[in-house]
Design a protein around this nucleic acid. Structure first.
Length: 553
DNA sequence: ACTACACGCGCC
DNA sequence: AGGGCGCGTGTAGT
């Protein structure tokens, strides 16, 4: 398959390298060029950063079949233990090392000049291909890079399409809970009333409940001794201030993170458009740097409503990480328990544990490194029952404690101890031995979780990539937004916006894509990845028993 | 005035 | 002493 390299040149120009043939285009001519080439034979577009190139193409109505995101792949290869780092060295290599994600606020191809503006895609691509080919894990790495790049396409497409968002619904929800929208800088009425109530109970007329020090001091004056002001701590206290104070904190959080200002900033033309960073976290999970896309609370999801005649198909994987652990460790007993919709219940039926809750505590404890309490006790028993699975995370933890890096199934390496992004303390003072020990154990918990969370992220990328292709094939023509399309992704959950009459077929494709992802990653030991699928008008109705609500007409 | 950090909370 | 994130806030440091 052809690889076409796109590099920005000084001025409004783009260099195109296609099978050795070099061409120079004006930026404005690029969408037409790409559209023509896509219609011809859909090459793999090789560019420095998908967000930078694809956003303008999407805006021009051009959809791309496949790409290779050099920045993302450079990061993966740099850290991959199975890659000979010297093969990545060469002209401009240091610039690729330093390359940051494209500014999400500037969806333009040519911006202010700096050293990283005009990197040569063809040079870097040649190095990456050579590095993968020379690796003993070339096949897995190749899959990882392809999945990663496809994820970048999905991310750009989701930002382009946006989550359908009804501002009136959101506004009504806010008004019901907080009172009418206040002038800038003021508290909404109901929030202010709660503040007054708290001040009265604590006999602190000047208290600003948003200030932790003030709040702590006021609580102490009222004879309430608490180490902090978090909700779980307050709930342990028996005092009339607890109820209004906790309610104040909840509503204040809603007001500041997902209130009217959030709507103003992130919702436009009936669409919520967050900005995603594929592989933005060290484990390969996505992060988001706009709109808090990966943490918007259940509370406001009722405002995500499909267009008229359309529905949302919402699907999430049940117990993704334990299933991934079963697959990557080749633990047949755990894979057997993973048959069916509820892995934890499968462990109970297997006779491994007494209750579902015990199974959950033990598995999560093993993956997170719990050492004490109920969770720690369950781990010991389950290790005998599922030695391969529990042994894998245990070995990852030991490796970390020895200061070694670990890798995911497809070969992503974790950041090294004391360097890179894991723990930002480059030259920590020569701490005492206890401190060093604590640090190593913390790194061990990180590496323990890294192998599972990172491989789960790889599964999810494969799921997304295959689903993206399947959705595109469902309909013969029309622009992206007129077809079933992904609008949201959150670690183990996807939301597809689709014409209502295609909902069942979309649901089937989501399920089929999950099977494909499982087979791709765990060919030697098949593991089930059952999904909870809902067809709903509003995101808030997903996952509820009793089927879809009646259409609201 | 601006930046950096800790906190508390939201999501998985 | 359970892993990964982002965000808004208040406060301390510059």
């Amino acid at each position: 398959m052809a690889r076409v390299h796109l590099s920005r040149l000084p001025g409004e120009r783009v260099q195109v390298v296609d099978d050795g043939h070099v061409d120079v285009l004006d930026v404005t001519a690029l969408p037409a060029f790409v559209a023509r080439r896509e219609a011809d034979d859909a090459p793999r577009w090789v560019w420095d950063d998908t967000a930078r190139w694809y956003a303008p193409l999407l805006a021009a109505g051009v959809r791309v079949e496949r790409c290779h995101d050099l920045r993302l792949c450079h990061r993966v290869l740099r850290r991959a233990p199975a890659v000979d780092a010297r093969l990545l060295d060469g002209e401009e290599a240091d610039l690729w090392d330093r390359l940051r994600p494209a500014e999400p606020t500037e969806p333009v191809l040519v911006s202010a000049d700096d050293a990283t503006e005009h990197l040569r895609a063809d040079l870097e691509d040649a190095r990456q291909l050579a590095a993968v080919e020379a690796s003993p894990e070339a096949v897995r790495l190749g899959l990882l890079l392809a999945a990663e790049s496809a994820g970048a396409l999905v991310a750009a497409e989701m930002t382009h399409a946006g989550v359908p968002w009804q501002v009136e619904v959101h506004d009504r929800l806010l008004t019901d809970l907080l009172g009418p929208r206040p002038p800038r800088g003021a508290r909404p009425r109901l929030l202010e009333e709660l503040a007054v109530e708290v001040r009265g109970i604590l006999d602190s007329p000047d208290l600003n409940p948003d200030s932790r020090p003030h709040l702590l001091a006021a609580l102490r004056r009222a004879g309430i001794e608490v180490p902090d002001t978090r909700r779980s701590t307050l709930h342990r206290i028996e005092h009339p201030v607890v109820e209004p104070l906790v309610r104040y904190k909840q509503l204040a959080h809603l007001f500041s993170t997902n209130g009217w200002a959030w709507i103003d900033q992130w919702v436009g033309d009936g669409r919520f458009r967050p900005v995603y960073q594929p592989a933005g976290s060290a484990t390969g999970r996505w992060s988001s740097n706009g709109g808090g896309a990966l943490s918007f609370p259940v509370q406001v999801r009722s405002a995500a409503v499909a267009d008229d005649g359309w529905v949302l198909v919402v699907a999430d994987v049940a117990q993704l990480e334990p299933r991934v652990l079963a697959g990557m460790s080749g633990d047949r007993a755990l894979a057997r328990a993973a048959r069916g919709a509820d892995l934890y219940q499968g462990m109970v039926d297997d006779g491994a544990v007494a209750t579902r809750q015990d199974a959950k505590l033990g598995l999560l404890g093993a993956m997170y490194g719990a050492t004490s309490g109920e969770s720690g006790r369950m781990v010991a028993g389950l290790t005998r029952r599922y030695p391969a699975a529990f042994g894998l995370v245990e070995e990852a933890a030991r490796a970390g404690e020895r200061g070694q890096v670990v890798r995911t199934l497809l070969g992503r390496g974790c950041p090294a101890l004391g360097g890179g992004s894991w723990d930002e303390s480059p030259d920590a003072p020569p701490a005492d031995l206890d401190d060093q020990d604590r640090h190593r154990r913390a790194y061990g918990r990180f590496t323990r979780n890294f192998v599972v969370q990172g491989t789960a992220a790889e599964w999810a990328s494969c799921w997304l990539a295959d689903l993206r292709n399947r959705l595109w094939r469902l309909v013969d023509d029309g622009p992206l937004e007129s077809r079933p399309h992904l609008v949201f992704f959150l670690h183990d959950e996807v939301v597809v916006h689709t014409p209502a009459d295609l909902a069942d077929r979309v649901a089937a494709e989501i399920t089929a894509a999950a099977s494909t992802a499982g087979a791709l990653l765990f060919r030697e030991l098949p593991v089930d990845f059952p999904l909870n699928v809902s067809v709903v008008r509003s995101y808030a109705d997903a996952g509820k028993p009793g089927g879809p609500p009646p259409p609201d007409v």
